[in-house]
Design a protein around this nucleic acid. Structure first.
Lengths: 195, 195
DNA sequence: TCCTCCGATGTCAGTGACTGACGTCGACTG
DNA sequence: CAGTCGACGTCAGTCACTGACATCGGAGGA
């Protein structure tokens, strides 16, 4: 017989999402989350470095998806191909079954600036690591920085669309459409070739 | 004779930057900043909503520079032109005289994750408002979102380079070079359609 | 001139996020 | 069976931030 019920971390995460969704982030204390999970506040902070972090676990997996997508590209892939590959890699993460959960979580985040800050921070971290990965593949700066930034930006736009109830396409289709659109946008329609 | 010395806000900002630079952000309490500026902690929080915010004042002006750059574009400007215009508008902000100050401030930010979060948050806010401005100019979604995101991303990359001691070009030149590079990057060199 | 209202600040008490130190006790290991 | 360890509890403490109320020079009006 174990001294404590296992799965503390998961119970804390569930309790937190539930409480944040009903009462709001600010109106929920760390102590309340801990009690709802059957532990003490101190234990909460042993699992999560701060109150916001309880909503942002598993970003390493998201990062791995990005990097895996890059790794799966052929050695001579161009930067755009790598961006597309990264987006493709991450698409497996956002299957249709996850949409309800993602929406619930995102609603909580959208309702609180502090949580939005943390979300941006996580994305920026991924962007930084992606930049490093691209450099490792021989992409020089500033191309690596720009490509990684593009991947993260398109990911953000894709994610937002994917959550939209009016949007029915799967994640990877949205991502590719947006990447194509960006390509069309950013290519200056030179006046000479466009009479 | 005034009851209090004027310029409290500015004194607080200077004291904060100074203390953050020497002791570090976490090791500096709001009370210490206030005392260094000759006021109480409560007054600090009357001027700045939180401890980080003291470093991020004047973002409205940066936003205005972005929007001003957009406004100065001709009515039929393409999205890339608008992005370029926004970057051009913001370039006036980063004259060479500001580089030492910007570097000092950035060193403080780079040394602390919480400050980096706030910086990202400010940039995201600007991105959102820029998106709205582009929509107002008739750019539909998702082009508006992507273009604004591009502007902010290229701005970030430009700012980083501009701060680099090895970089001697002025802000706007770096920005345009990076935007061009992005255009080259993101345009898939499709052999079939590009004979 | 005097009064009155206002705005920037001080004072104080309180809440809640987070941390360090230490104790507890089942489980595992030799 | 003794010792170690990992996951948790307990407690006290610091600091970010907030609300309520007091203070008093100064600007404007009677």
């Amino acid at each position: 017989m174990a001294r404590w019920r296992p799965g503390t971390r998961e119970r804390l995460q569930e309790a937190a999402l539930e409480l944040f969704a009903t009462r709001g982030f600010e109106q929920t204390t760390a102590t309340e989350i801990a009690e709802a999970a059957g532990v003490t506040e101190r234990t909460f902070y042993r699992h999560f470095s701060d109150k916001r972090e309880v909503l942002f676990d598993g970003q390493e997996v998201l990062l791995e998806a990005f990097l895996g997508g890059v790794r799966r590209c052929p050695a001579d892939a161009s930067p755009v191909d790598l961006v597309a590959g990264a987006l493709q890699g991450v698409a497996s993460f956002f299957s249709d079954e996850r949409r309800p959960w993602s929406r619930a979580r995102q609603a909580v985040i959208d309702a609180n600036p502090a949580l939005q800050e943390r979300e941006l921070s996580k994305l920026a971290t991924i962007g930084g690591l992606l930049t490093a990965a691209l450099r490792d593949r021989g992409i020089p700066d500033p191309a690596a920085t720009l490509a990684a930034g593009t991947a993260v930006m398109v990911f953000g736009a894709t994610f937002g669309r994917w959550l939209d109830p009016a949007e029915s396409r799967p994640f990877d289709q949205i991502a590719h459409a947006l990447l194509d659109e960006l390509g069309a946008l950013v290519t200056r329609p030179a006046p000479l070739t466009r009479p």
